[in-house]
Every structure is written in structure tokens, then in C-alpha cells.
């Protein structure tokens, strides 16, 4: 309800930064942060793009965002457990070094 354009542009910039970091970062932890940050940006677009209903912002997308936040943390939590195990087993924290896979 307040200056939707400001939020949308900020969300777009955050999404761009997230995608840039996802491609450039070689440390998986940084890539997971990038995905969480991009998710927050998309939630912002979801709420703002839905538009106000008689003044207040529409309640339904807010419930969707709440569901989205919990799903985001479930995915990130599992990804972190996977990352720690990957680092423990192969000693690498990046998807790049394929050296030690048993081909």
C-alpha cells in the first residue's frame, strides 16, 4: 500500500544480486544464502504485486509467503546438512572440484 514501486525495484535488485552471487560464488554456503535472499525478493514481489484490497494489502498472499518462508528454511536446513556431510566425506565445499569422485 505504500509506494509499491519502491519495493518492486528493491526486490528486483536483490534478485539480480542473488543470481549473480549464485553464479559467481564457488562456496556452497554462499550459494545457499543467495537462494534464500532471492526467495525473500520473490516473496516481496508476491505480496506487492497482489495489490491492495480496500486499503490494506490482500491477506491471502501474506499467508502464502508465510508458507514459503517455512518451506525455504526446510530446504536450506537440509541443504546445509547435505553440505556438512559432503565436506566431511569429500573435504570439498564446492561443486566444482570433481576430483575425488569414484568414477
Amino acid at each position: 500500500m505504500s509506494h509499491a514501486e519502491v519495493w518492486v525495484i528493491a526486490a528486483a535488485a536483490v534478485f539480480g544480486i542473488g543470481l549473480y552471487s549464485l553464479l559467481i560464488a564457488s562456496h556452497l554456503l554462499r550459494q545457499l544464502i543467495a537462494i534464500k535472499v532471492m526467495g525473500s525478493a520473490i516473496f516481496l514481489v508476491l505480496v506487492v504485486a497482489a495489490g491492495p484490497i480496500d486499503g490494506a494489502l490482500d491477506g491471502l498472499p501474506k499467508a502464502l509467503v508465510l508458507t514459503g518462508i517455512v518451506i525455504a528454511i526446510s530446504a536450506i536446513a537440509f541443504a546445509l546438512a547435505l553440505l556438512v556431510r559432503l565436506a566431511e566425506v569429500t573435504g570439498s565445499t564446492s561443486l566444482e572440484d570433481e576430483a575425488d569422485d569414484d568414477r
Binding site: 549464485l22 530446504a75 541443504a79 561443486l95
Partner: peptide, 21 residues
């Protein structure tokens, strides 16, 4: 818990999360 499976799973998860976004 095979190393190759762990790495493949990590790549699959990252791409799947990006697809969901």
C-alpha cells in the same frame, strides 16, 4: 552416503531450488 551421490544430490538440490524460485 556415496560421495558421488552426495555431490549429485547437492547439484540437484541447488538447481531444483532455483527452478522453484
Amino acid at each position: 552416503g556415496k560421495p558421488a551421490a552426495l555431490r549429485a544430490a547437492m547439484r540437484y538440490l541447488l538447481l531444483a531450488l532455483l527452478g522453484s524460485l
